[in-house]
């Protein structure tokens, strides 16, 4: 019962949305791209898209900064 976020294994939580996962990971940076098993999740779907067990999540933070 785990998922992989940016190559690091963490516990899977049932019915966890993308928004909640970002909150759990403390990913507050606004310019992020989220992919679940290589498929992009639209920002407008972050609240409703539920993370499946065993999935591979990429939360790509754009560079910005500096």
């Amino acid at each position: 019962m785990t998922i992989e976020v940016n190559g690091r294994k963490i516990d899977w939580i049932e019915n966890e949305s993308v928004t909640k996962l970002l909150k759990r990971m403390k990913y507050t940076f606004p310019l992020v791209v989220v992919k679940i098993n290589d498929k992009i999740v639209l920002r407008s779907d972050f609240k409703i898209k539920v993370i499946p067990d065993n999935s591979n999540i990429d939360v790509i933070h754009m560079i910005s900064g500096g």
Partner: peptide
């Protein structure tokens, strides 16, 4: 000075 490269997110967070 960070004007050459700012790679912290790519490296530390995205692990890319």
């Amino acid at each position: 000075q960070h004007d050459e490269a700012w790679l912290i997110f790519m490296d530390m967070v995205n692990n890319s």
